[in-house]
Design a protein around this nucleic acid. Structure first.
Length: 120
DNA sequence: GTTCTAACA
DNA sequence: TGTTAGAA
């Protein structure tokens, strides 16, 4: 199938599918006309990728976890979970930093407001 | 009509 | 990511 159908079936934009390929998340073949050729498996992969990206995972990490998604079940419960947990922990740290930054900015505005009201 | 690449917002 | 330009 061509990119348009994959995008439709996976529920993402054609643009997104091309981007996923750039990031090495999907490897469609190419027809003589230069068009990307996908199979049914790719639809599922694209759905997986979309889900992981929505969870805030960098494409770099997804690229590393992807190979395990179609491996034997023995590896699925173990490896990907630890990896996921590690990523979520880092994501939490990112939020922590953003919260701190926002709090500082809020306090700065409070200070300005307090000073402005006195001179007013 | 659909896809491609490249580039800009 | 969306969108757009020009070409196949």
């Amino acid at each position: 199938m061509r990119i348009g159908e994959v995008a439709r079936l996976a529920g993402v934009s054609v643009r997104a599918v091309r981007y996923y390929e750039e990031e090495g998340l999907v490897r469609p073949g190419r027809g003589a006309n230069g068009y990307r050729r996908f199979d049914e498996r790719d639809v599922e992969v694209v759905r997986q990728v979309r889900g992981l990206i929505e969870c805030g995972l960098p494409t770099r990490i997804i690229r590393e976890v992807l190979p395990y998604l179609d491996s034997p079940d023995a590896l699925l419960p173990e490896v990907p979970c630890e990896y996921m947990i590690e990523q979520v922990e880092r994501q939490r740290e990112v939020l922590e930093r953003r919260i701190s930054c926002l709090e500082r900015n809020r306090d700065a505005l409070d200070a300005y407001l307090a000073a402005a009201r006195q001179s007013a």
